[in-house]
Every structure is written in C-alpha cells, then in structure tokens.
C-alpha cells in the first residue's frame, strides 16, 4: 500500500491542475489536450512494455488471420491482428481476439495427469515417466498386434491395434512427423484427423 504524503493544499492544487472542465470551458478539445492529466501523461501503451514480439497465425479457423504476439518476461501480454496481412489487415474475429485469453488461461494443463485402470481420479505424474510408459505400451501393443502377412500370403506389414487421431489444429511439421513415425516407422494405418468429422 502506498501512503499518500501530500498535504491537503497540494492535493487541491493537483486536483485543480488536472480538472478537465475549466480547460474545456476555455475551449480546449475534450478529447485531446483538455483530457490530459498527471496520470495520463505517465500512461504508455502496453506494447511498449514488451521485450519480445513474434508473428503468429490465429489458432482457430482456416481463414489464417495473421497475429502479432507481444511478450514480457516470457509471458504473453498482448495479441493483435497483424495489420500487414492481406488476409485480415489487422482484424480478428471474436475467436481470434480471444487468443491471449487462450494462451494465458489459468485453466491450462501444466502437468501430466494419469489415470490408472479402474481408478476414480487422476494422479499427477512426471513427464519423463509418462513418456517412458507410453513408449513401452506402444511397443507392447505394436508387437502383439503387428501383422506381416494376411492368411492368403498378402504382405501388409501393419498394425490395426493402434489408432492416431488429430492433426487439423497442429503444424504441418507435426502432421508430417506423426505420419512418418506412426505410419512409416511403426506400421500404424488408422491415422486420422478432423478432415472427416
């Protein structure tokens, strides 16, 4: 808490100095000079505080509106439409405009949640443990379900025991690696994304 050490006299003087009405009556415009005050003099745009800015693309629909993301100390402080973009010319719709709310949402997941078979609640587990457990489960299911040849001798070299869903909200590079690793590496064929549903 800051303690106001100003005397009543000083406070009155500062009130009179900042009071807009006399200046308006004197003919100054209410939206510029008459609106200035000691506080407003010190205001600066939020963007000035940013120590980093990057170009981004809206994470919602396929229109592909461009965004500028401003950050300070590793935290996003502002997201706006990129005025240079021929797609959106700086505009964003209600979803795109909510991007900062999405990124900074306190409801975001921050740890791996794990649910044991038949359990009634989540547990938190270390990321590394989860990665190793998932790798082993993947290997086990693949090994148990991998088919080299069908009964009639047709070569298939695949597993139908594992499925992969998702991709339409991910980067091209992520989709590429998913198809390459799960398909080309592990023999998974049931790889699908939101293009159908």
């Amino acid at each position: 808490m800051t303690i106001n050490r100003r005397t009543p006299g000083k406070r009155i003087a500062s009130f009179v100095r900042d009071w807009s009405l006399p200046r308006q009556l004197a003919g100054e415009p209410s939206k510029s000079t008459a609106a200035k005050s000691t506080t407003s003099e010190k205001l600066q745009p939020r963007l000035k505080l940013a120590d980093k800015v990057g170009t981004s693309i809206c994470p919602y629909c396929a229109v592909g509106c461009a965004q500028l993301i401003y950050a300070r100390n590793g935290k996003v402080i502002h997201v706006e439409g990129d005025p240079r973009s021929p797609v959106n010319g700086g505009r964003l719709c209600p979803k795109g405009a909510a991007t900062m709310g999405l990124l900074n949402n306190p409801e975001r997941l921050t740890t791996v949640k794990y649910r044991r078979p038949h359990a009634t609640d989540w547990e938190e587990v270390p990321l590394d443990w989860a990665m190793e457990r998932i790798a082993r489960l993947t290997k086990q299911t693949r090994d148990e379900t991998f088919v080299e040849k069908l009964a009639d001798g047709t070569v298939v070299n695949h597993t139908l025991g594992i499925g992969v869903l998702g991709g339409a909200t991910l980067d091209n590079e992520e989709n590429y690696l998913m198809k390459k690793v799960f398909g080309g590496g592990l023999g998974v064929v049931a790889i699908e994304n939101q293009a159908r549903p």
Partner: peptide, 22 residues
Amino acid sequence: ALRGHCSIQGSTDIPTLYEMLP
C-alpha cells in the same frame, strides 16, 4: 472451400489421414 481448423488444409495435404501419403 471454407475450412474449419487453422491447419486442416495442411493436415489434408501433409495428411494425418489413412489413405494418403504426403
């Protein structure tokens, strides 16, 4: 075609789809 997700076109071109390779 007005598609729904930010990279649904990308994930069709570089597909996470069963019947296609990139």
